[in-house]
């Protein structure tokens, strides 16, 4: 089962290596990992998507907690979380299919960020399902290159006081 971990860490050199190393040592494959500074520049937030059974994930979270540079870990509940990722897709777009591609981009509310003679580069933001869907739609046209940020996520705010 996929889990999205939100890990608050010291914004210091080497912290990423400590965390990534721990996952590989304990036999965990990281699906995606996105990291950046938080509202407080002393800290970074890592959003790590992993696949694993709950018991061994619990062990990894406990081990993560032991790292001096790790302040907080949340195993985010998918129902109570907003998650987004950003993907850039460079797709073949000769005149014959270009109009169709633009139509798909519109439907997904994606953006075209680069236009060239034979390609279009498309920027998509959304949850994992949406990103996956547009990728599948564009695949038949010939995806030349693709880059994705990995998911970033936050727990939803409280709806009532």
């Amino acid at each position: 089962m996929k889990h999205t971990l939100s890990v608050l860490v010291d914004n210091e050199p080497g912290v990423l290596a400590r965390i990534a190393g721990l996952f590989s040592r304990r036999g965990f494959n990281i699906d995606s990992l996105a990291v950046g500074r938080t509202e407080d520049s002393k800290y970074s937030r890592m959003t790590i998507v992993v696949d694993g059974e709950t018991h061994s994930l619990e062990q990894v979270m406990k081990q993560l907690h032991k790292l001096v540079n790790v302040l907080k870990i949340n195993d985010l509940d998918p129902r109570e979380t907003v998650g987004r990722e950003l993907v850039l897709i460079k797709v073949n777009a000769p005149p014959a299919t270009r109009a169709q591609i633009i139509e798909i981009v519109d439907i997904f509310r994606a953006n075209i960020v680069d236009v060239a003679k034979n390609t279009l580069t498309i920027e998509v933001t959304g949850d994992t399902n949406k990103v996956h869907a547009i990728e599948e739609m564009l695949r038949p046209y010939g995806v030349k290159e693709l880059a994705r940020t990995g998911k970033i996520a936050l727990a939803r705010g409280l709806k009532s006081e």
Binding site: G14, A17, R18, G21, K66, V68
Partner: peptide, 14 residues
């Protein structure tokens, strides 16, 4: 050495 010892220390510093 900080890289090498990462898996075998409680913590390390450069």
């Amino acid at each position: 050495i900080t890289g090498i010892t990462l898996p075998i220390v409680k913590h390390n510093y450069l």
